[in-house]
Amino acid sequence: MFKKTVTLLFCLIMCGCAAREQTAEFFAMDTYMQIRYHSDKDLSDKLEDRVRQIEREISVTDTGSAVYKLNESGRAVFSHEGSALVDDAIGLCAKTEGAMDISVYPIVREWGFTTGEYHIPDDDVIARLLERTDYRLIKNDGDIVTVPDGMMIDLGCIGKGYTGDVLAEMLREEGVRSGILDLGGNIQTIGKKPDGSMWRVGIRSPLVTSGYDSLGVLMSSDEAVITSGGYERFFEENGKVYWHIIDPSTGYPAKSGIISATVIGGSGEVCDALSTALFVMGEERAADFWRDDRSFDMILVTDDGRVVITPSVKDRFTLNDGEYLLQVIDDEN
């Protein structure tokens, strides 16, 4: 019995040595990506190549990308993957009733959020651009996508989430059972930590302008945790803050009372889209949306100092910041 135990222990130690922590890190999709996973194989190049492949199709700045061509000429041929992504995006725009709209891109650009040359556009410029903001006018016929004159799209609101799904799937197929993907702050977890405990995912505090203190910590396993906040890309003019999340119904930065929206769920693509959409919707609409859907969980931070969470998050979320009041959303309609 004792011999068996020791032999087993020996094997365990040896197995532990074979699968070691590997890290892939690179700059892609306008962000810094870091992927940590347990494997005996170095999959860095494979992961990076796959990210670049997706980026080449959906980049808004790469002149060779399908999205660039579509935005230039109103028509482009997509790969099957790119075309499916366009369909998914349109579906999510519809599901959120336009709270997220991939055709809002020209307005985001007009505000300077894509270039860093920030300014407040004239009202009539916004009004004119709003006329061309409507995801329902995007057509996808057999991988050939067309948009009306003057409309442009950006798949950025689901791109990184989708990429996370693809990479997590690749890693799982390679036998990886423990990993954490950080695609520019979009987090996806695979299994648990090698020691069997849950991954600890911090939720960034939206009000901190320097440093990166976490508002709280979420215990996570096999899911995506994606946060949208106004804190990273913004500018101030005459004492007012303007951030990059534009409400597609007004053409102005979303002022819904939510300053950070985190969505937790199985699909990174969906969580990515919903984090933007809920930020635009505001607390009440977001809560109603959740009650109707229930396929995800959320952590909303409001501008009056509350952290609003869905019931099942309660047992695995710890609020660090005592300044906030924790509230659990009412389960009933």
């Binding site: 702050g185 995912v201 939720i203 960034r204 976490s214 910590v217 946060t227 990273e232 890309r233």
Partner: peptide
Amino acid sequence: KLVIRIADGDDETDAVSGRGQHG
């Protein structure tokens, strides 16, 4: 393309959600 990080830095969190579009 410059990154500064703390090696084996933290036991509080393994990653932080919402690092932001440019970070």
